[in-house]
Design a protein around this nucleic acid. Structure first.
Length: 267
DNA sequence: TATCCTGTTACTTT
DNA sequence: AAAAGTAACAGGAT
């Protein structure tokens, strides 16, 4: 479910609710979810919540709690008296007791992870640039595209560019008129510029709509993002292309379901 | 009932 | 370097 815009939405809502709250307790219900050996964040105050790629970073004084939602993770805050409600206990993997709230991590498929760490170097080492920062330029994208890999697979590689997932890569490539199986090195500069524009604009618009909710993604427990109605190709198999009316087809690229207009997006 | 599908990532093999 | 396969999981759709 969650790509950059969804993670950003979760971070924005969390920020307001957990600022200055202190970690009082931690209840790990599914052992594999909490990866780190250390966990001495108890008694520490939450000083900031931010995002790097698809990772949520909860800063507590000089330490960090890092959360990756993977496919079905949900991270949200509830009032203390609501902990035992069935909808909160369902798929609950970790609960953190805060000063006057609970921070819950639910995860149906158990792929999500929570890390405790003393620095973020390991994240910086594995993640490419943040696409929404002004310092992510067309030249950066040109550099990334100096590769013979299929462009969709390349854009999904978090070490090349951070935050894009299956939905937004398909949207960007449709916007730019690039077929997902094009070898990146063969994409003309003109289209790389369009991809760059698409990455910035589509992610930004998705954030404004609080993300794309298909099956499981929600924020603040159960609120849904509204970007589904703005999608141009993703999940539109057998529907008409908004540019040329051709029927959108679904294929597989890099083992991922991929939506494409074979007329607008040529290799 | 059985099989296939899913918005992620890490690891191994080819 | 790139591609392909597998694995981690649960549950909805076909």
């Amino acid at each position: 479910m969650p790509e950059l815009p969804e993670v950003e939405t979760v971070v924005n809502s969390l920020k307001l609710m957990v600022a200055n709250q202190v970690f009082l307790g931690c209840d790990i219900r599914w052992h594999k979810t909490f990866v780190s050996a250390e966990n001495n964040f108890l008694k520490k105050k939450i000083t900031n919540v931010s995002r790097r790629g698809k990772y949520i970073i909860i800063e507590c004084e000089d330490n960090y709690l890092v959360v990756h939602l993977r496919m079905t993770g949900k991270l949200f805050v509830i009032n203390k008296q609501d902990l035992l409600l069935p909808e909160h206990q369902k798929h609950l993997r970790v609960s953190f007791e805060l000063s006057d709230k609970y921070l819950l991590f639910q995860d149906q498929r158990k792929f999500g992870r929570v890390y405790f760490c003393k620095d973020l170097n390991w994240l910086e080492e594995k993640l490419g640039p943040e696409p929404l920062l002004d310092n992510f330029t067309v030249e950066d994208l040109v550099g990334i595209c100096k590769s013979a890999r299929q462009v969709k697979v390349l854009l999904l590689d978090q070490s090349k560019i951070a935050g894009l997932g299956n939905i937004y890569v398909d949207e960007v490539l449709w916007y730019a008129g690039v077929h997902p199986q094009t070898k990146a090195i063969e994409i003309p500069l003109k289209k790389i510029k369009l991809m760059h524009r698409g990455i910035k604009d589509i992610l930004q618009k998705a954030i404004e709509n609080k993300g794309t909710s298909f099956q499981s993604y929600t924020f603040e427990g159960s609120k849904k993002g509204g970007f589904v109605s703005e999608l141009k190709v993703f999940n539109r198999a057998k529907a008409q292309c908004f540019k040329c009316s051709t029927i959108i087809t679904k294929t597989r690229v890099g083992q991922r379901g991929t939506y494409v207009c074979t007329v607008c997006q040529v290799i």
